[in-house]
Design a protein around this nucleic acid. Structure first.
Lengths: 131, 131
DNA sequence: CAGCATCCTTCCCGATACTG
DNA sequence: CAGTATCGGGAAGGATGCTG
């Protein structure tokens, strides 16, 4: 029998219009991976996230968090206090992305040096040694 | 003794100017992950890569491949033939990125549906149920 | 504190046409 | 076949100022 029905579309990144590509877009977003790092140990307030990821403007950080919230990766909790407090946290879905994300992060940190060297080598080819 | 000297900078993605961030940029590039998929089974010609990744213009594909070549992730081999033949392949460094990349790809394909659902839920909140 | 509004710049990417 | 040259649009991201 057919256990996966017609409503399990079998996403394929190689297909131009495949929704799975949005994930790559997210990861490529300038601040998304940093936000995940900031939230990986539990809920954090807006300002805490901001402090953790560096000098991102409030506008852009809000955009980033809203997008992640819409995608179901980040939860947003507002406390009716004054001064206002808003906490962000990874959802269950969001936490499952931590693994792949960390693999990429680890690779990046381990191999950034190699990339830099490759660039130097590439850029020095064809520079200066021809009359 | 100190096996890793002071010239192993211990890259950290959380640092604003850290070179490891370029890796995230690459993955976020529209065509880079697709190029990796196209090259994962061995060398491919320019036209083969182009056919595999979909409708990318020659200019953009060249840009992408040049960047990857400069970063030491992709090799480029020109054969002195007519008509000309150029083959691209992953370097050793490039192949080590296949793992992390595939983790992300697998997650994306597995969870694109969940993201789509989350979006529907998010977008339908606050639409239609208020007078 | 946690945003929103507005303006502006930069960069990615695509369409089209041409070449060794 | 495998590119290069040129033009242009649109989206991401940043600067600044204001608000519940």
């Amino acid at each position: 029998m057919d256990t996966n029905g017609p409503d399990v579309p079998a996403f394929d990144v190689m297909q131009a219009d495949c929704p799975s590509r949005v994930v790559l877009q997210r990861i490529g977003d300038k601040w998304t991976p940093l936000v995940f790092q900031a939230l990986k140990d539990g809920p954090r307030r807006f300002s805490q996230v901001r402090a953790a990821v560096g000098q991102v403007t409030p506008k852009v950080l809000t955009q980033t968090l809203r997008t992640l919230e819409r995608d179901g990766l980040v939860g947003r909790r507002v406390y009716a206090e004054v001064p206002p407090r808003v906490e962000y946290s990874l959802t269950g879905l969001g936490r499952t992305l931590l693994g792949p994300l960390d693999a990429v992060r680890a690779w990046a940190e381990a191999n950034a040096g190699g990339i830099l060297q490759a660039r130097d080598a590439y850029d020095s080819r064809g520079t200066g040694d021809l009359p």
